[in-house]
């Protein structure tokens, strides 16, 4: 008998969004902000990007060879290296950048079993490590105009009470980390990822909504010295964090309710740290805190199905 159909094991329909495709799309989404950072910082940015990407690949390759596994270039090291470089101060010595990305890749990713199994975002963990190891180098900023030491909009607001013009912050022509300054270009990249359905819209939506809500509360009820919601939404690393760091699917809870809480929690901690901690910026720490809480958020039960009674619920919760 001649078979009209093919028999094979599942999956029968292959998705176009495998890991390398996702990573390719993330790089495309980062491209405008990266191009702008080359314009802003010139050679410094180029050196930082290349050092970070090189050591991301080198540490990944070395670790996989030590474990005697096969190295597959899935692009995740490229994305981690680029994202990590974008969060660094442009004046950071290149050797520090190398230490940071090696720490992030080895401790943050490969000790946990590699791609898809890490608890924390490797790029942010590497940055937190640098923050602890080299606090002075990680908090000194240069102006894009004359390369003189200056303050970022957030640290100017926090430590001397000056508020930058919104226009300058929006365009990104201001001191800050290599790739974080241009909120508009990062929003453009985020929109691309949302349209291609690479990232879950819930995380950035609730992240930005929480930041906007909390900063408006403070601005309108506690005084203008707390900074306007527009200022808080577009300054610092918020856009980079909300669209590219917090949305890493590995470190998110799997359920939708958990993701909503994840996004809102990131916003809550960002504003808490911006207002009350010793640091002017809280995006990195807040995303990492929510990464740590993500496995607990996973326990939040999914929405109750229609007609579900208590015995079913008991069975599920066992």
């Amino acid at each position: 008998m001649k078979r009209e159909f093919k028999i094979s094991l599942s999956p029968h329909d292959f998705s176009a969004t495998d890991v390398p495709a996702v990573m390719r799309n993330v790089v495309i989404a980062l491209a405008p902000a990266m191009a702008y950072s080359f314009y802003l910082w010139g050679k410094r940015a180029a050196f930082l990007y290349s050092v970070c990407v090189f050591f991301a690949y080198a540490s990944e390759y070395a670790f996989i060879k030590i474990r005697k596994k096969t190295f597959v270039n899935d692009g995740s090291a490229l994305v981690s290296g680029l994202l990590f470089a974008m969060t660094l101060p442009p004046s950071l010595p290149l050797s520090y950048a190398a230490y940071g990305i090696i720490f992030g890749m080895v401790f943050g990713k490969h000790f946990y079993g590699g791609l898809g199994q890490n608890i924390f975002n490797p790029a942010l963990l590497g940055r937190a490590f640098l923050m602890a190891a080299f606090p002075a180098a990680m908090t000194s900023w240069i102006s894009p105009l004359d390369a003189l030491t200056t303050a970022t909009p957030l640290s100017a607001w926090k430590f001397s009470g000056e508020i930058w013009e919104t226009g300058k912050i929006l365009m990104g022509n201001c001191p800050g980390s290599v790739g974080e300054t241009s909120a508009v270009l990062l929003l453009l990249g985020g929109a691309y990822l949302l349209i291609r359905k690479i990232i879950d819209y819930r995380v950035p939506l609730f992240y930005l909504a929480a930041v906007g809500f909390i900063s408006s509360l403070f601005y309108f009820f506690a005084g203008e010295s707390y900074g306007s919601p527009v200022f808080h939404l577009f300054s610092g690393g918020l856009m980079l964090g909300a669209f590219f760091m917090a949305t890493d699917p590995v470190t998110l809870p799997a359920n939708f309710r958990g993701r909503v809480i994840f996004g809102a929690g990131c916003g809550f901690f960002t504003m808490l740290l911006r207002y009350f901690s010793g640091f002017p910026e809280g995006v990195m720490f807040s995303v990492l805190i929510m990464n740590a809480l993500a496995p607990l958020l996973e326990k939040i039960p999914a929405k109750e199905s229609f007609g579900e009674n208590n015995s079913v619920k008991r069975e599920r919760n066992r």
Binding site: F107, G108, F111, Y112, I119, F120, L125, A128, F129, M131, A132, L273, F276, S277, G278, F279, G282, M284, F285, S286, L288, I289, A292
Partner: peptide
């Protein structure tokens, strides 16, 4: 081993609250 590494990472993260 991994539990201690994780504890170290958590301590790094909680550093964010310092100075509060």
């Amino acid at each position: 081993g991994i539990a201690l590494i994780t504890a170290g990472c958590l301590a790094l993260i909680f550093m964010g609250f310092s100075g509060m």
